[in-house]
Design a protein around this nucleic acid. Sequence first.
DNA 1: CGGCATCCACATGGATACTG
DNA 2: CAGTATCCATGTGGATGCCG
Lengths: 118, 118
Amino acid sequence: MHSATEDEGCVAAWCADDEWCSVTCTAHLIGRKWHPVIVHRLLENGPLGFSALNDEIETISSTMLSNSLEDLEEKELVNRAIINEKPFRVEYSLTEQGTALEPVIEAMDAWGEGYLRS
Amino acid sequence: MHSATEDEGCVAAWCADDEWCSVTCTAHLIGRKWHPVIVHRLLENGPLGFSALNDEIETISSTMLSNSLEDLEEKELVNRAIINEKPFRVEYSLTEQGTALEPVIEAMDAWGEGYLRS
DNA sequence: CGGCATCCACATGGATACTG
DNA sequence: CAGTATCCATGTGGATGCCG
């Protein structure tokens, strides 16, 4: 187990005082409603614009997409790039850490599929 | 088992109306604070009693442990068995579906460790 | 276009006290 | 021992509307 007394990068206070921080921290970072979907889309399609994401995830509102992306950017899982065109676009891509989530997302996807079928 | 057609089904209504349900549903089921830790412990140690779990996860209160276990049992990820001894014990073990979470938990653990170090 | 500001509803986390 | 019952604080999801 690692000592969580060092870097305070994990977002939440409760990541700092127990040895199960790693799995708990991951749950806290991507365990929210839209986060894993967004990462999943970016993993599959590469960089996507705001509208593209909004279209792909049909049931999300622009407010929630914006909130989620802001959060993911804060946690350094997603990069935000402003493209100067007319009209301008904003493109989102995964950071290295975000890309490293692939095994997690894949496993979640596979398990969820099985669970829903049962 | 369980069908996602009932409103109880996958736990949340939003699991029913989009195609990203699998990954989102998984996030909803184990994305809570203590759930992944509990599953992790049960994966590593096999069946554990309430006290054993409470001791292993030092920072959890018995209230939260009870709530989390109840939820996990409801979702059919954990089995609850009452052992008639004196004093009696209650033993928790993973269901088949719960055991199937191993790749997810492992991936979360590995990723979280890397994230915390960065 | 890609947001942000509000406001609200509900889910979740948690401390404390009590019980069969 | 293994919970339940309260009560409360905070987190999260989401609809609506404005804005550069």
